[in-house]
Every structure is written in C-alpha cells, then in structure tokens.
Design a binder for these strands. Structure first.
Lengths: 235, 235
DNA sequence: AATCATAAAAAATTCTAAAGGCCTTTTATT
DNA sequence: AATAAAAGGCCTTTAGAATTTTTTATGATT
C-alpha cells in the first residue's frame, strides 16, 4: 500500500522507508542506528545501508560521527523554530516569484487546483478520523506547498525549500500524534490561499501564507519535545 | 601537503578529495563518474565510493540516475544566478541576525578579525601571483563569509548557507581559471565589511555585502560557461 | 568508594569477489 | 531499412572476512 513499484532499487526503497520511519517517529529522535540491527529490519546489506544513511545525513535527518556510527537526528524546539523561520523565508520568496512568473500560469494554476483538491479531501477525512490519515495528510499538505513554489523559476530555490519543508514536516507529523489536527481553520486557510493564488492577489497570498505557516507551529508546553529519547530495540 | 591527518577515515578523505576535484574542475562539469575508474583514481572500493557519491548527490555536486550511475553536476549561468540569489537571501539575513545577537560579540568579532587577517594575506598574494593561490583564496574567502554568519544563532541557517556558498564557490574557482582576480576592489570591500562589522553599523554592512556578493558574479560572455564538457579520461 | 588498567565483546570501517540486472551497442535476420 | 537477438559494459547488491575502534566488563590499586 505504500510501496507500489517493485522494480525500485533496494537503495531507493530503503532510503524512503528509513526516512519515513524517522519522520513518523517509528525511529525515535536520538536513537542509535546500529548497522546490524538495520540490516535485519530493512533486509539490506551493510553497504547499502551506509550509502542510504549517508544520504540522510546530508539531508539532515541523521547524524553521523566517525567510528561511532549513525543516529536519528534529535528534535528540539530551537531546531523547529529555525526550520519554521527558514521555511517562511524561502517559501514566501518563492511563492512571490511563482506568482510574478507569468509564463505557464495556466499549467501552474491547474496543478494548484489539483493539489488543493487532494489536500481538501484528506483534510475532511482528518476531521472525522484523526490518526489514520496523518501520513497521507502530511504528503498532501507538503505537495500543495511544494506546488505553490514550483513555478518560481529557480531549481535551487525549489530544492532548498523542499529540503527545509521535509525537515519541518517531521515535526508536524510527530506533533499530530499528541495534539488534535487544527481542522476547520487549516481547511479555510488553504481555501483562501487557493482563491487568492488563482486571482493573482500576491499580497493577500503572502499575508495568509505567513500566518498559515506560523499557526502550524506546535511548541509543546515545557521542553517536552524530545518525544522519546530512550533507545528502544529496533530489530 | 593537503592531507595532514592520516587517521582520517577513507570515506571522509575520499569525500573531501572528490568534492575538491569537482570544485576545482579536475573533474569536469557533466563528466561521467564511472565507479571502476574512480576506484583506481581514489584508491577506494566501489562501496566506499558509492557512499561518498551519494553524499555529494545530496550536497548538490553530483547527479545520480538509477542504473546509469553518477556524473558531475553540470554548470550553467542559470544555476549560478540561482545560487547567487539564494546566497544573498541567506547571507544577508544571517549577518543581520549575527549583528543583532548581542551575546558573545567579543568572541565573534575576534573570529572575524582572525578570518579577515588570513583572507587579507592571501589576497595580497593573489595580486602578485594569480593562479597558485586560487584554492587557498577560495577557502579564506569562504571562511570569512561563514564566520560572518556564524553568530546568527540558527544552526539550520548556518547549515543551508554553508551548502549554498560551497556550490557558489565552485563557480568562483572555475571562473578564476579564465579571468583575473578582482584584486584591490575586493580587498577594499572586505576591509570595509570588517570595519563596519566591528563598529556595529548593520545597515552599512548589509549594503556593502549585497553589492560585494553581486560583484563576485562572473557571467561569461555568451553561454560559454560549460567550461569543459567532453569527458576526458579520469584514470 | 573512586580510579585506573586490562581484557573481552560489540560495532564500525573497508575491501574483495562474485552474482545478477539494466542499458546500449553490435550483429544477425527478415 | 527495420527489427530481433546477442554481447559487453557498467551498475547494483550481497556476503564474508580482515582491521580498527569503541564500549563494556572485570579486577586491581589507591
């Protein structure tokens, strides 16, 4: 149900599984990633795993220390705040560019409508049946925002934004296991965003987007964020 | 003479060599990276090389296609412009934060002075004897700019800025093989930057920095930038 | 009890060798 | 000339073993 294509290379599929397990918290923040345990859990050889983990290190999901191996990147409120701020900087700038880029607006807007439709469907589901759609919602929400910036004309900006939003969404997913979905408010914001995007009302979009991103922020009461730090068995 | 620490892991050292060879153009933009050839050239096994190359893929220096292997990321004026713009966005924002962050200013300014001194030394050398110091200058210039943003308080911002500036410096190094060093002008800009940094004159710093980054831009006449595209033997 | 040294166990790093798969090119056939 | 079959090259992945390093356990010393 998650993995459709069997022709996918081992490396690619392990990469996706590992990243997904980190984002959803199946691998806890801070947890040590021992190669032998992973070898069994993901049915891949040590070499393939190292290759994959190194990618995740560069992506910011995994830490690596010489001779001591890998561990899941810990979470912290400071890190979340930093990512939020970066996301705002990159996403606002990229959305502005997307809107100012007049060529190919029709295709872009059509993609926006399509992404928004999918997001809307899943948000409705989320309001009835919370937990079971978290992952689908994460993907749909990310897709919508990625589509918004996709027309900005800068591949590098798109790349860095994608990287930041992926790290950011990890916090969203982890948080959704401990607090309810924002629900109607979020749905309305997405609705408004789409409307103003289609109507070329740049400033409205940027204003709403700015606060939309801000409101997604979930700072746990104390410093509770290190959700689980004890290393649990992984094999 | 380049590698001091022999205890360094093979993977780490190969990573640095490979990246350096890409930045300096010893590996040409677009060049196919065949594992067997690399295995000989870098005295490392296929596994170690794949591990390393995957890191460079995530870092943006190498391309990877399933079943077709790796190749050096091509260069283009569009890519350079994108990186320039990203660098400006991130660096200006981070330097402002660094200057507004009042804690530990003494240590920061001391690091700035130290980095500037090294840069100044090398820039003097550069004006006499061009070619032989390109790499040292690249490092010193990058160090100075990295130090400027190092006090901004956001590890993530620092990380993304470092990533962008490394990709950007590749163009600087490649360009320095075809056009003279900017010389006195650059020296004076760095001098002014330091002065205003030490005097807490934020707006002056940002103004100078903005144009300083812009002036570093070298856009070849036509679309000549693909410096060398033919794949030369690498073993 | 705290500290240090030492030995044993666990984990990481890396390489070789080899099987199997995909892609491209060459060759052969219609 | 078009298409099919075969060949060769390169990528992908695994397994196993040799080294080195880190961690843990144990025991001796202060």
């Amino acid at each position: 149900m998650i993995n459709s294509d069997d022709r996918k290379l081992v490396g690619q599929s392990v990469y996706e599984q590992l990243r997904s397990d980190i984002v959803t918290g199946k691998l806890s923040p801070g947890e040590k990633l021992k190669l032998n345990a992973l070898r069994i859990r993901y049915s891949a050889s040590v070499n393939t795993l190292r290759e994959t983990l190194m990618r995740l290190v560069s992506d910011g999901f995994v830490l690596f220390v010489d001779q001591k191996g890998f561990s899941v990147k810990p979470v912290s409120t400071a890190d979340l705040r930093e990512l939020l701020e970066l996301r705002q900087m990159l996403e606002l700038s990229a959305v502005r560019k997307s809107m100012e880029n007049k060529a190919g607006q029709m295709e872009w807007k059509s993609a926006l409508i399509s992404a928004h439709f999918r997001l809307n469907c899943i948000e409705k589901l989320m309001m009835e049946d919370e937990g079971s759609h978290v992952q689908a919602w994460e993907k749909a929400d990310r897709d919508f925002h990625v589509t918004m910036v996709s027309h900005c004309g800068s591949q590098q900006l798109i790349r860095y934004h994608a990287s930041v939003i992926e790290l950011y969404m990890r916090y969203q997913v982890l948080a959704l296991h401990r607090r309810p979905f924002r629900g109607q408010a979020s749905v309305e914001e997405h609705q408004k965003l789409l409307k103003h995007l289609l109507d070329d009302e740049t400033e409205s979009v940027l204003t709403i987007l700015d606060s939309h991103i801000q409101k997604g922020l979930f700072l746990p009461d104390a410093e509770k964020i290190p959700l689980k730090v004890k290393s649990k068995a992984i094999a």
